[in-house]
């Protein structure tokens, strides 16, 4: 609902009325440099493993998008009665081999790298199944994916949606959204995924993946989405680093979530 009421949606809908809209142009901004910060992302889910944790670093804005991977870290994931020490298969990519993702279990991540330690806890929620994937016809024959599912009543549920077109994620962070049942508890949900849907065309295959995530991961991904909208000026919120569920001063997040998905071929 907050997404629907966001003023930027209103403004963009009515900008088409303004006959003399200005344009957009790339500008040169002098941004400060910063020291490389550790970024940890990891996910364990209810599908069979192995599961991956990646460790990388931040770079300066003007650098190439080659985010350096951090090797030689000590990484463990403990849960479901097992403590698994992850093996580094590629630089910065650490993979499990014994731990299993099970609904309702608590998983603890421990990372020791470059003399510092980082920990995180995530609880895998019970799975909510995606019933079906339908479509909403928008302006100019645009298609939006719609996720249909029943929200369990009397439980706080948080959902993450990821779209894949022909097996690939959408570029520029599109196709990612989150949803909380704060205002929808117990309802049958038809959630329209509003994203630049110009990629959903006839002849393509759309896969919609729905993850059930815990509250801390929802907060992280929600704030991440808000800063991905970009924008700075009087009409937008002041951006800040998303609140991570990793303690110790790292960026990124660790999530124990369930996964369900539906695939549809668009005729």
């Amino acid at each position: 609902m907050a997404q629907l009421l966001k003023i930027k949606n209103l403004a963009s809908v009515f900008l088409f009325v303004c006959a003399f809209i200005g344009c957009k142009k790339v500008i040169d901004v002098k941004l400060k440099n910063s020291n490389g910060q550790i970024v940890i992302t990891g996910e364990i889910n209810n599908r069979p493993g192995p599961y991956t944790v990646t460790i990388s670093k931040t770079v300066n804005f003007t650098s190439d998008n080659d985010f350096p991977r951090v090797s030689g870290a000590f990484v463990t994931i403990a849960g479901n009665g097992v403590t698994d020490t992850l093996k580094e298969t590629d630089p910065g990519t650490y993979v499990t081999h014994t731990v299993n993702g099970k609904m309702g279990e608590t998983y603890k991540l421990f990372v020791s790298v470059e003399g510092k330690t980082y920990t995180s806890i995530s609880i895998m929620p019970q799975r909510v199944r995606l019933d079906s994937l339908s479509f909403l016809l928008g302006r100019k024959d645009a298609l939006y994916a719609v996720a249909n599912f029943q929200d369990p009543p009397a439980v706080e549920n948080y959902y993450q949606f990821i779209e894949y077109i022909n097996g690939q994620k959408l570029p520029n962070g599109r196709g990612n959204s989150v949803f909380s049942d704060r205002l929808s508890d117990g309802r049958y949900i038809s959630r329209v995924i509003y994203d630049d849907s110009s990629d959903i065309k006839a002849g393509t295959t759309l896969t919609l993946q729905m993850n059930c995530i815990d509250k801390a991961v929802y907060n992280y991904l929600n704030e991440l989405q808000q800063i991905s909208g970009g924008g700075s000026g009087f009409s937008s919120q002041a951006p800040a680093n998303p609140t991570t569920n990793i303690s110790g001063g790292a960026l990124g997040y660790f999530s124990a979530n369930t996964v369900t998905s539906k695939t549809v071929n668009i005729p």
Binding site: N65, K169, I227
Partner: peptide, 30 residues
């Protein structure tokens, strides 16, 4: 320009570029 919060770095999460913020309102709009 008025004061704004702009990134001072960037990193990657789930294959997407994410911007890294340090202080609040440390920059100015043109």
């Amino acid at each position: 320009g008025n004061a704004v919060s702009w990134p001072s770095g960037k990193y990657e999460v789930n294959g997407n570029t994410v911007f890294y913020y340090t202080e609040r309102n440390g920059y100015r709009m043109p």
